[in-house]
């Protein structure tokens, strides 16, 4: 399966300044939490604590599955399928 990843709100800085990445996996589907762990283990370039806390994303990061808040798709139980677009967005506080 192929998953399209997007990072914004500054998270791209943790991924070698890449805003978009494509991930190829051998399985048919993957749970969002295992996906997050996979990203942490294989794609993250620095400071994993800024991306992951425990088994999920750090508070303040919004996760979107195909441009929808993951809470609408099942939250941490969400299942990611081939071709899905997953966005990780760090909430901005500047003003």
């Amino acid at each position: 399966m192929k998953v399209h990843l997007e990072f914004s709100g500054g998270l791209e800085l943790l991924f070698g300044k890449k805003k978009q990445l494509t991930l190829e996996l051998d399985q048919e589907t993957i749970g969002i939490l295992p996906l997050i762990q996979h990203i942490r283990d294989h794609l993250l370039k620095e400071r994993p604590e800024l991306f992951v806390v425990g088994n999920s994303v750090r508070p303040g990061i919004l996760v979107l599955i195909n441009d929808c808040d993951w809470e609408l798709e099942g939250g941490t139980e969400s299942i990611v399928r081939d071709g899905d677009k997953i966005c990780f967005i760090s909430t901005l506080h500047g003003g």
Binding site: G10, L50, V53, R58, P59, S90, H93, G94
Partner: peptide, 15 residues
């Protein structure tokens, strides 16, 4: 170290 998130987080910093 989690306490440092906001100070160092990519989105949490100030202008």
């Amino acid at each position: 170290p989690e306490g440092l998130f906001n100070a160092l987080s990519p989105g949490g910093g100030a202008c």
